[in-house]
Design a protein around this nucleic acid. Sequence first.
DNA 1: CTCCCTTGTCTAGCGGTGCTAGCATCGAAT
DNA 2: ATTCGATGCTAGCACCGCTAGACAAGGGAG
Lengths: 192, 192
Amino acid sequence: MSVQERKQRERADRERLIVATARELAEQQGWDAVTTRRLAERIEYSQPVLYSHFRGKREIIGAVALQGATEMAVAMRAATAAADGPRARVAALARAYLDFAERNPAVYDALFQLDGGLAYAQEDTPEPLKDAFAALLECLGEVAGDGVDQALFTETFWAALHGLATLTRAGRLPREDAEWRVELLVDRLAIV
Amino acid sequence: MSVQERKQRERADRERLIVATARELAEQQGWDAVTTRRLAERIEYSQPVLYSHFRGKREIIGAVALQGATEMAVAMRAATAAADGPRARVAALARAYLDFAERNPAVYDALFQLDGGLAYAQEDTPEPLKDAFAALLECLGEVAGDGVDQALFTETFWAALHGLATLTRAGRLPREDAEWRVELLVDRLAIV
DNA sequence: CTCCCTTGTCTAGCGGTGCTAGCATCGAAT
DNA sequence: ATTCGATGCTAGCACCGCTAGACAAGGGAG
């Protein structure tokens, strides 16, 4: 039995290595540079090994996305926990969100820009994704305002953050006044 | 002289044909299906002809984007012109924006999601892009609120719309409550 | 201890991609 | 009529995601 266990462990290790390497490569040179050939070379195995762990490149992107969702939820909860009062909490949340997107562009892309084959906003949505949304909801729910559905409010606020994150990163919005835009968003959307 | 003129005209026609065909193909089957081979076959020329008009696929995407920007500006101005009062104008603008994104997903992608090699938010930004932003600004400027920079407000509002458009289209947001989210956005962001 | 068979990995290759070098053809100008 | 430049073609490069099939290593049965 112990032999099988060891093999299973080694296999799990290798899977983690694949995901970590894909993520690293994507952050360094963008997802376009993450080809199965390059990835295989970096983990020092041949291409087909990747396909014994994942159905294809898309599933590898999905794995990075799930990892990122977990980290993002942690980052957002840490930021809101350190802030006093609803207004400050929302501002901290927004900054944490945009900061994460800025610091981990490849992970953010895997989550919200690329097709990782994951289900969103459904019953079979993976737990990490649901939890990341829950982290948003916990903070934003308390500023939705009376008679406003908290989930819908959260979705709308999230969409606004997502728009800022992507347009800024793609050079569609000048980077300089980013902080100002966040302030405006929080001031107007959140009801103290 | 007339011979050269005729040739120039035919060349311009062919360039328009390339852009129109690329757009059509992208709307029908997505940008992934727009390969230089397929595109060449549809216009009934060989691949290298494409490269005598455009540097590469990216520039073709850029051409579709510019065309789309012009149309989008027209659509937004038409929508706002038909509405009475600032509040109604902003709501009409938002709906027109999202409607355009929904009806022309490939063009929207070319504009805001893909790399068409265009400069955004700079001096050398192509005129159609500047004009599309101007169309947003014309309407949104009047609801920015006192002491708030109109351009920055417009950028923020635009980002929110962009977030809604992309997340909805990617299945990250359920489609059902789209209208409700627009209402919330307009009510909260616009200052009557 | 030897044989077999499973398990795991690799090499090689398929059909596709964006893009380009170099040849052939055609038409205008001499 | 002949030259010559413009123009579009065929063929091919290096790369992509993915997979079939050969091959070696290792544990279990006799």
